[in-house]
């Protein structure tokens, strides 16, 4: 692939309409992202999806046609938006695809009534002790607040959302927002080293970048407001402080695809202002599966 990977088009919907008519809303964001990229579905050769079978109640890879995947090279990565976005990047850079449609969705507002994620804990030790992601996240927040009392209190709002990004080469798209770098870091359900500070994991992921950004716009998605704010101090503690945080994932969390909405927001922002952006996706009960993506470009 010549040039760098760039976001050629993007669209998003967050709100109750997504749960009411999930397939139509996913299709709408796919079509809108294609329109904004000025590409047709025929130009797409790979579709990467990120969504949860548990939330959907239907096996996602067998319903990928809602994202226009019929006849395309599919790749389903339900673990996180960050993993899926990084996968889309390497599909392009390796030459497996020329244009990738990345679509993610989730109707997670139902979790506010019954949090089915209790089934994520191991059945021998953790589940009998009542471990559920909500409690694990709260425990993490409690430890963080003990050490860093200025962080915001923990909280997360479940929502419904659908996002689509069209990715391809930046060649011929000088004003496109480029995905300059991606790095990951991870820990087990309970971090093996007993350290729950997400900033540690974010720094590990960013250490894999080829270049560090100067004063980026920052968007974070994680298990709750406390952890997100702590992760963002990788940039917001700078002197002078960096640009304000974009609205975070915990304000409207719709499952593993949530950080695609943060990617969408960064894309919109950078398309207007240019500069650099950082997406921090922290998936998992403590946000322990981290992907950090560096974006650059857009309008000068």
């Amino acid at each position: 692939m010549k040039g760098e990977v760039a976001i050629l088009g993007a669209a998003a919907r967050v709100g109750a309409s997504v749960a009411a008519d999930l397939e139509s809303e996913v299709r709408s964001v796919v079509l809108d992202s294609l329109a904004s990229s000025k590409l047709d579905l025929d130009d797409i050769d790979a579709v990467v999806t990120v969504a949860s079978d548990t939330l959907d109640g239907v096996m996602v890879p067998i319903r990928a046609e809602v994202a226009g995947a019929f006849g395309k090279m599919p790749l389903n990565i339900p673990s996180s938006a960050g993993h899926a976005l990084a996968a889309a990047v390497v599909l392009l850079e390796s030459g497996q695809a020329r244009h990738v449609l990345l679509a993610g969705w989730g109707a997670a507002s139902k979790l506010a009534h019954h949090d089915s994620r209790s089934i994520q804990a191991d059945p021998f030790h953790d589940r009998p002790a009542g471990a559920v992601p909500a409690q694990v996240a709260a425990l993490q927040a409690s430890e963080l607040l003990d050490e860093f009392p200025d962080l915001p209190p923990h909280g997360i709002t479940f929502a419904d959302g659908a996002v689509a990004l069209v990715l391809g080469s930046s060649e011929g798209h000088d004003a496109a927002v480029r995905i300059a770098d991606a790095g990951t870091s991870s820990r087990g359900y309970y971090p093996e080293d007993d350290k729950v500070d997400p900033l540690r994991w974010v720094n590990e992921a960013m250490a894999k970048w080829r270049q560090q950004p100067a004063k980026p716009q920052v968007a974070v998605s994680g298990p709750g407001r406390t952890a997100e704010a702590r992760a963002a101090t990788a940039f917001t503690d700078a002197t002078p402080p960096g640009p304000a945080l974009l609205p975070s994932g915990s304000e409207a969390w719709f499952g593993p695809a949530t950080a695609l909405f943060q990617a969408f927001q960064l894309h919109e922002q950078l398309s207007r202002t240019g500069g650099e952006g950082v997406l921090i996706d922290m998936a998992g009960p403590m946000g322990q599966h981290v992907t950090c993506v560096r974006l650059a470009g857009g309008a000068a």
């Binding site: 999930l22 239907v58 019954h114 089915s116 089934i119 059945p123 021998f124 589940r127 009998p128």
Partner: peptide, 12 residues
């Protein structure tokens, strides 16, 4: 260990 996993779904 026995377990049950119920996830209520409302298919629209």
């Amino acid at each position: 260990v026995e377990g049950e996993w119920e996830v209520h779904q409302r298919y629209v």
